[in-house]
Simulated scan of single mutants.
Amino acid sequence: MIQAKGFSIQVYSEDFQNDFISLTDIAKYKSDEPNDVIRNWMRGKDTIEFLGLWETLNNPNFNPVEFDGFRMQAGSNAFTLSPKKWINSTNSIGIVSKAGRYGGTYAHSDIAMEFASWISAEFKLYIIQDYKRIKLDENSRLSLTWNLHREISKINYRIHTDAIKQYLMDDLTDDQLGFKYASEADMLNVALFNKRAKQWREENPDLKGNMRDYASLEELLVLANMESYNAILIEKGTEQKERMIELR
């Protein structure tokens, strides 16, 4: 939640990439009737053109025909437009109407900041300042979570290599052991990332570490599970080719 000049402004995200900020809460800075403020903002020609451009850039299902109709009418005394009408008519994704306790009109952060500018340049700066704080905190938490999953992946890798050592390496020399480890690790790399470690290094000569150091949280979780399951398959005596099919 953003805190700006004593006002609390709700924020939500469905994918940790696109934040939606409450226009209803921002509008309360100007009036006790926030819905009227939002509708008044949406009457403007500049607003309609901005919303239309944002949707054109970000929404492949945007309805340009309905948008052109609104653009032609925008700015006239008789023109009115509500968020719901805009959403339903144009298939907008940049503005969202939510019901419930924390309901109201929300907009993508790009649009919300434009709305805040219209409300008050000063208020917008306070919003930006606290929004940055929220994003820094969020990035810090995500970094800690990523490191945790990376450590889990490393632990599973040790379990995985122990299984290889116990069940697959009885007849290998010391020189051959390293190759077998790499072979099993690369099998998982191919199963998950669709490339071997050597391929990744050749494609990314300027990056330090290995491809797993640059994996997403989701990929690390999948990798950890794959390593555990592969260790079980090794114990069962499943051949590598069959394990590859099973893991993919």
Rank of each mutant, 00 (worst) to 15 (best):
N210P: 00
L207Q: 14
A163N: 10
A163Q: 09
Y167I: 04
I152W: 04
I159C: 01
K195M: 15
E218H: 07
V222W: 02
D130M: 07
M226S: 03
A224K: 02
S140F: 11
S228P: 00
D213A: 05
E227G: 02
R196Y: 02
M169E: 04
Y167S: 08
K132A: 14
L142W: 10
D137W: 06
R133T: 15
Y131T: 07
I234T: 13
Q129K: 11
S143Y: 11
Y126N: 12
Q166L: 11
H160Y: 14
A215L: 08
M211E: 03
N156M: 12
K195D: 02
L168T: 11
L177V: 02
I164A: 07
Q129P: 02
A215S: 15
L221W: 04
D170F: 05
E122P: 00
M169V: 00
K195H: 03
Y214M: 06
N194C: 04
L125P: 01
Y157V: 02
R150K: 15
M169Q: 09
D171C: 05
L142K: 13
Y181S: 02
E184C: 05
D170L: 07
K165G: 10
I152Q: 04
K124L: 14
N225H: 10
L217M: 11
D162A: 13
L142R: 12
K132R: 13
R141S: 12
W200H: 09
D170A: 10
Y214S: 09
G209N: 04
D171K: 07
Y157P: 00
L148T: 15
S228E: 12
T173W: 05
I134M: 12
I232W: 06
A191E: 02
L220E: 01
I134E: 06
N139T: 13
S120C: 11
L168F: 03
Y167L: 03
A215D: 08
